[in-house]
């Protein structure tokens, strides 16, 4: 499943700027940008037959859940309650974001009023719901588009919408401190995903995070110089106990990032000799 947080419907840049998932050469796997579209994908409500009953479906499911919950033990009841509350909460937040955009009363770009924190967290919650429900086992999430040069509202960080990309080229003086606020804003969302996944309990008592690998990385290092080398990458999650964490692994110069991708693929049980220009796996990652 492919998710992104680029609320702009105008095609300011090509699809290569906001898609990291591709079926093949020039065959992009379109990311889902709209929370409603993602919700519809999860709950099959893009089906016209479902649309007729859209407003009733959740209420019916909630009613079913209520009657089911009376037959369950305490732990199962808590799990079901937590899941139903999560779904209902997502619906309320989607409705709130829709209302904000509808009431903004501006022509273009309407999505500038979208508070990115709420938007990103909603997309993350829907992505986690897809994993939790077993709809997908592999997801990508773009927390924002490359370049784009559209102003976006980082609520709680800046009073007015700002444009991320030019800020990355204006790091001199105090410019870097302003830019770092966006980095922190993004890091909070990564932390949010990890916390949420840690809270999703599997049948055997482990968490979704214990059974996953959650990578967080950048295609450019220092944005000011379009640095494509010496990139950082964070990996979280235990992959069912095979990964050892709490460490900083400094690779030797020239280590291809594809070594990290090969490592992840193998950890997940995919038998590959090589991935892109990989020269091996990242040593020191396994316990």
């Amino acid at each position: 499943m492919k998710v992104s947080c680029n609320g702009f419907t105008q095609g300011k840049e090509s699809m290569r700027f906001d898609n990291i998932s591709w079926y093949g050469v020039d065959q992009f796997a379109p990311s889902i940008k709209d929370p409603q579209a993602l919700y519809d994908r999860l709950f099959l409500s893009d089906d016209e037959r479902y649309n007729d009953h859209l407003n009733e479906v959740t209420s019916l499911v909630m009613a079913d859940a209520k009657s089911l919950s009376m037959k369950l033990g305490r732990n199962d009841k808590d799990t079901l309650d937590a899941f139903m509350t999560m779904v209902r909460d997502i619906e309320i937040r989607m409705s709130r974001l829709r209302k904000l955009v509808a009431e903004a009363g501006i022509v273009r770009p309407t999505d500038e009023v979208l508070p990115r924190g709420e938007y990103i967290k909603l997309q993350c919650d829907l992505m986690i719901a897809a994993l939790q429900m077993g709809i997908t086992n592999v997801t990508t999430m773009m927390i924002g588009p490359e370049r784009w040069n559209a102003s976006m509202l980082y609520e709680g960080v800046f009073d007015k919408p700002v444009v991320h990309h030019p800020m990355s080229h204006s790091q001199k003086g105090e410019g870097y401190a302003k830019l770092q606020k966006i980095d922190l804003f993004h890091m909070e969302k990564y932390a949010y995903v990890l916390s949420r996944m840690k809270g999703v309990k599997e049948a055997d008592g482990t968490s979704l995070l214990d059974n996953s690998i959650v990578a967080c990385g950048v295609g450019l290092g220092d944005g000011a110089i379009h640095q494509y080398f010496d990139l950082p990458l964070m990996l979280a999650g235990k992959a069912q106990g095979t990964l050892k964490h709490g460490r900083h692994l400094q690779c030797k110069n020239g280590t291809p990032i594809s070594n990290a991708w090969l490592t992840i693929a193998r950890e997940l049980g995919v038998e590959l000799d090589r991935f892109s220009n990989s020269t091996g796996t990242i040593s020191g990652l396994m316990s």
Binding site: F229, A236, T255
Partner: peptide, 17 residues
């Protein structure tokens, strides 16, 4: 922001694309 997750994270640096 990741302070409560540090024991669950590995940072890898020095990767070339």
């Amino acid at each position: 922001p990741l302070s409560s997750h540090l024991e669950n994270i590995t940072l890898i640096t020095g990767l070339d694309r």
